[in-house]
Design a protein around this nucleic acid. Structure first.
Length: 631
RNA sequence: GGGCCCGUAGCCCAGCACGGAUAGGGCGUCAGCCUCCGAAGCUGAAGUGCGAAAGCUCAGAGACCGUGGGUUCGAAUCCCACCGGGCCCGCCA
């Protein structure tokens, strides 16, 4: 997009100007000035050069600026250069040319997305144990991961969205114990989603029973062994239950706008024997050791020379621990071992494309997964330690491969005291961590339903004569927008203390604000006579600061996305969207379009409205926030 | 005991990766704005100057950026220590 081109030109001008002034290898750097009265782009290079040469920063800026002004004449977008007495070099845009070019580029459908040329990338996210419904903590994972997938694709990468299904762990076993040994019905009540039933009623109840009746725990390990065996009545039965729960979970994921390319089943990973080969290599290189004495007697362990501690990878009964499942999975992702899987279609109903599933026997291999250049795992911060172990092992298997295996960690979602109390729990501090076992959580669907309820109310108020199905569609979009934006906009390193009442907010820095802003923009296009039209002459009429700011902001989407991709931080897009929406509303309040008498100016403004709203829609799409023409 | 993360107005957050020009938003509070394109929005908050007035002009609420040191011409940003909060360090996943 054009602002990046402008920035490139500015950097070139600075480099050349420094050279001309006798400073050959000056490091070029530019930044957005704190206030646009300084200019459109600034550089502190003279300050640095002054420091090195012992001159005054202001004088240095003047010296560099005099060279830069000449050079700037050859560029397309640099309109002016001025020195600042503090030592800054301030660059201004050739505004009419910049605006005209920006608008035509965007109007032609070029929203800054990179075409092809990217890397093969895997993004793993969601990864919810198939024994319960998604709560808002899982939703944070999904929103982060799915947005990352979208941003990476925008940046031209070829992305595989992976969802790991732990179908052979203790949590699934608990459900089966409930059905097989506590006599709980394996059909939930009518009208209750199956994942909700299993999580709310079965899982919670089984865990209560474990406390009262410790003998029941033995049933759990029996079930676990049966599942691991992979055949027999219990294993077959479990497969059916897991599939049913998973389908219910996927309905929620799809509702939130996430789509996946592949489901990786843990049971298949185990049966693929990928671990065996890796285990052998690790043994050969002496990285894993057998302990014949001490507290880990009979186990295979990975020693950590730094801490002096050791991590068990194979238990004394010969079964593998969780990291030993994550290691082959990671190795498969970055292509350190041959792909043992075939692939089959799991669902064609997924909005956003066919969903595949790993398959050991009978799977076709016309599609390929794994073996990527960059693997990103969206996993909460509590697993950082284990992820570091996985990375270390990858480096042992192939030096440097951990650089291609990135853990995007994020903090958990907790519940505010108010919300926890409303759910019937007594809380000590200001917030409470969610707990599936205790039944202390807010389901993603529950939250979406609450949001939707409120959105129906608000939408009806504004559109009393529209049909119910239309209202419902809009309200659903508003609900998803509100939840996704809320979970995305905050820094992943910060714990979210979720409060039900606060989250029902539709004003201010929220998803619905973006939807509203977009709808306002489309309204102008509907209501105004004339057509969006821009050319160098009419662009010269767009001189109001609100117009210039809006045009500048909209041409920075690609820059935001690049930052988001580089730091695996989609919240960049949230910030950008909000700023763009604020710029638009500022323009909306002060600059008339419909009522503008000058037809050229009106059409130019129309084209600005059209272009900026397209960019807004694109940035919303990158966050998975739905867009509607009218709300 | 070892490690990771957080600490910015009454509340919630941005800015920190790459040190730089007046530390940005949002909620809440108070006061305004729908016979100008959608009020899910926007404007204003002691006041100053001009004017009969509409209005214009300049200014503008709330923050010792957890504390104390250090590096630097310059620190919210980098380094160290401390304080407060959360998390991890299992033959659970």
């Amino acid at each position: 997009m054009k602002f990046l081109e402008f920035q490139g030109e500015v950097e070139e001008v600075i480099a050349q100007a420094c050279k001309a002034a006798g400073y050959k290898d000056a490091a070029v750097e530019v930044s957005l000035p704190p206030n646009d009265s300084y200019g459109d782009l600034s550089s502190a290079v003279p300050i640095r050069l002054a420091k090195e040469s012992g001159k005054k920063p202001g004088d240095m800026a003047v010296a560099i600026a005099s060279k830069a002004m000449e050079l700037a004449k050859k560029s397309r977008y640099v309109g002016g250069v001025s020195p600042h007495r503090g030592g800054y070099l301030n660059f201004t845009l050739n505004r009419s040319r910049f605006i005209a070019d920006s608008i035509s580029e965007i109007s032609s459908g070029d929203l800054g997305a990179t075409k092809g040329k990217g890397k093969l990338v895997a993004v793993e996210h969601t990864n919810v144990n198939p024994n319960k419904a998604l709560h808002i903590g899982h939703a944070r994972n999904l929103v982060l991961g799915d947005s990352l997938v979208r941003v990476m694709r925008y940046l031209g990468h070829q992305v595989q969205a992976l969802n790991y299904v732990d179908d052979s762990g203790a949590q699934v076993a608990d459900i089966i114990v409930g059905f097989k040994f506590l006599g709980l019905p394996d059909e939930g009540p009518a009208g209750v989603k199956y994942d909700v039933y299993c999580g709310d009623s079965v899982y919670a109840k089984v865990n209560q029973e474990y406390v009262k009746n410790p003998a029941l725990k033995e049933k759990q390990s029996y079930v676990l062994k049966e599942i691991e065996k992979g055949s027999g009545e219990i294993a077959e039965y479990t497969r059916g239950i897991v599939r049913k729960i998973l389908e219910a979970q996927l309905a929620t994921c799809w509702r939130m706008g996430a789509a996946y390319d592949l489901l990786n089943w843990e049971s298949q990973l185990v049966h693929s024997k990928m671990w065996d080969g890796i285990f052998e290599s690790l043994k050969k290189m002496g990285y894993v050791r057998y302990q014949d004495s001490g507290e880990n007697k009979g186990c295979w362990v990975i020693p950590d020379p730094e801490s002096g501690e050791e991590k068990v990878v194979v238990r004394s009964d010969g079964t593998v621990v969780y990291v030993a499942k994550d290691i082959p999975y990671a190795a498969w992702k970055v292509g350190l071992i041959p792909d043992p899987f075939g692939y089959e279609v799991f669902s064609r109903d997924q909005p956003g494309g066919v969903l595949y599933s790993t398959a050991l026997a009978g799977g076709k291999s016309h599609v390929h997964f794994g073996g990527v250049e960059l693997a990103v795992s969206v996993i909460d911060t509590r697993q950082s330690y284990l992820q570091r172990i996985v990375a270390k092992v990858l480096d042992r298997l192939h030096e440097g491969s951990s650089r291609r295996y990135l853990h995007r960690s994020y903090e958990v979602v907790a519940l505010s005291k108010k919300t926890a109390t409303a759910l019937g729990f007594q809380i000590e501090g200001e917030f409470a961590h969610m707990s599936g076992r205790k039944g202390l959580y807010v389901n993603a669907d529950t939250m979406l339903d609450r949001l939707k309820e409120k959105a129906v109310e608000e939408t009806k108020k504004r559109n009393p004569s529209d049909p119910d199905h239309w209202v419902a569609d809009v309200a659903e979009a508003v609900a998803v927008a509100a939840l996704r934006y809320e979970l995305l906009k905050q820094d992943p390193d910060k714990m979210i203390v979720f409060d039900m009442e606060d989250a029902l907010q539709f004003q201010g820095d929220t998803g619905p604000y973006l939807l509203y802003t977009y709808a306002r923009a489309r309204r102008i296009l509907d209501k105004t006579e004339g057509k969006p039209r821009i050319d160098p002459e009419t662009a010269a009429k767009l001189t109001r600061p609100e117009e210039v700011r809006l045009a500048k902001k909209m041409s920075m989407l690609d820059m935001s996305a690049m930052t988001a991709g580089e730091f695996l931080s989609p919240k960049e897009i949230a910030r950008f969207s909000h700023e763009l929406a604020v710029s638009f509303n500022d323009f909306y309040e002060r600059v008339p379009v419909n009522k503008e008498a000058d037809a050229d100016l009106r059409d130019a403004r129309l084209s600005l409205v059209d272009a900026s709203s397209r960019v807004l829609a694109e940035s919303m799409r990158l966050m998975g926030v739905p867009v509607r023409d009218r709300i």
